[in-house]
Computed example of a mutant assay.
Amino acid sequence: MSGRLRVAAAIIGLCSILAAPQAEAQERVLRLGYLFSQSSQLGAGAERFASEVAKRTGGGFRIELYPNGTVGGEVETAEELRQGHLDIAFITSAPFSGIIPEFGVFDIPFLFRDARHAHAVFDGPIGQDYLRKFQQKGLVALAWGENGMRHITNGKRAVTGPEDLKGLSMRVPQSDIMLAGFRAFGVKAEPLAFPALYGALQSGRFDGQENPIAVITASHFEKVQTHLTLSGHVYSWAAMIMSKSAWEALGPAEQKAFVEAAKAAGQVSREVAGRAETEGVEALRKAGMSVVASVDRAAFERSLQATTAEFSKTFGAETIRQIKSVR
C-alpha cells in the first residue's frame, strides 16, 4: 500500500471511530408506561406507537416499553408524567375524573349506546375539546385510544338487572362517578388500583369487578370469576399522553410524527378491543364462564335516576345531552 493510501485508510478509520458514538448519540430513548400486559389492547397500541415513531423519525427515537404497571398504577403514572419523570404513557380513563374533574362525565353509566357512539363523540368536536383539557395539568395528549366497553364479572350469580347486583362487593376504578353509579345499584363498591385486583378477587375480598373484555381475557379473570354480564355500562377511553418536558424537547416535524404515531396506536387499540368483544367472549365462555349476553338497560337507567340528576348538576345537563345526541 502506498503512503498516500495508508494515510487515506487511517483517516477513514479515524472517521469511523468518531462517527460511531455520534450515530449512537443521535438516537434518543423515551420511556412509555402502560398498565396492562403486552397482549392487551394497550400493549398492541404501545407496540404500534414505538414502531411508528421509529419509522416516522428515521430511527431518531427509540421508545422503551414498560407494561404491567411497571411504573405504578395509573394515578401514579399520571403523576410521573406530570412531574416529567416519565416521558409517555398510554393511560385509560380510570384515574382522570379525579385529576381533571370534567372527564368524570364520561364515567356516567349508560351514557354511551355502544363503542360506535363513543368513537363518534371522541373523534368529533367534543373529543377534540377534551383532548386539549389535559393541558390543565401540564400534560400533552397526542391522540385517543381505547380501553373498551366495560362489562361486569362476579363469582356469585348471573346479573341481568340492577336487582342482581344488590349486596355484591365489587371493585371499581378510582373514579368517584363510577363509585356513585354502582352504589346506586346497591353494590358495595370500593376503589382499588388495578395491579392488586387479581389477588383481591382470588382471596374473596371482592365478589366481582368490571372491565373491558380485552382486559378480562388478558388478565385471566376467568380463573377467579364465574359469571360475565355484557352490560356495556361505561365506555373506557384511553389516551397516548406525553409529559410537557418531553413534548417541548421535540422539534415541529418530530411533534407531528409523534401525533401521527399516536393516532395509529389508538386505532390499533380500538381494533384489538373490538375483536375481544366477539372472540374474547367466546374464549371466556369456553373457559367455563357463564355469559349473560344482554341486560335490562332501561331498568338500570331507572335505578340511576336520582344519581343522574346529581350528575346533571355536576357536569351540566346540556353537556350530557350533547354527548347522548351524537350519531
Rank of each mutant, 00 (worst) to 15 (best):
M1Y: 11
G3H: 15
R4Q: 14
R6A: 14
S16C: 15
I17T: 05
A20G: 06
A23S: 10
Q26G: 03
G33P: 10
G33I: 04
L35E: 13
F36D: 10
S37N: 05
S40E: 06
Q41E: 13
G43Y: 11
R48A: 00
A50P: 05
R56N: 14
R56Y: 13
T57H: 10
T57N: 07
G59W: 06
R62T: 09
L65T: 07
P67H: 06
N68Q: 12
G69K: 09
G69W: 09
V71S: 14
G72Q: 04
A78V: 05
E79N: 07
H85P: 08
F90T: 00
S93V: 03
S93I: 01
G98K: 09
D107R: 08
A115T: 05
R116T: 13
H117T: 00
H117E: 01
A118I: 03
D123G: 10
G127K: 06
F134S: 04
L139Q: 12
L139G: 14
L142N: 06
E146D: 03
M149S: 04
H151P: 13
H151R: 14
I152H: 14
T153E: 13
T153R: 13
K156I: 02
A158G: 04
A158E: 15
P162Q: 07
P162G: 00
L165C: 08
S175H: 04
D176L: 04
D176S: 09
D176M: 07
G181V: 06
R183A: 10
A184G: 15
F185P: 13
F185Y: 15
A196N: 03
L201V: 09
L201I: 05
L201E: 06
R205I: 13
R205G: 15
N211F: 12
P212L: 03
A214Q: 12
H220D: 12
E222W: 15
K223C: 01
K223H: 07
V224P: 04
Q225H: 03
S231V: 02
H233L: 12
V234A: 11
V234Q: 12
S236H: 08
W237C: 00
K244D: 03
S245W: 00
A246Q: 12
A249N: 10
A253K: 08
Q255C: 03
K256M: 11
K256S: 15
F258D: 11
A264W: 13
A265L: 10
Q267C: 00
V268T: 11
R270F: 02
R275P: 01
A276F: 11
G280T: 09
A283N: 10
K286R: 13
G288R: 05
S290L: 08
R297Q: 10
R297W: 01
A299Y: 02
Q305W: 10
T308L: 04
G316H: 03
A317Q: 01
A317R: 06
Q322H: 04
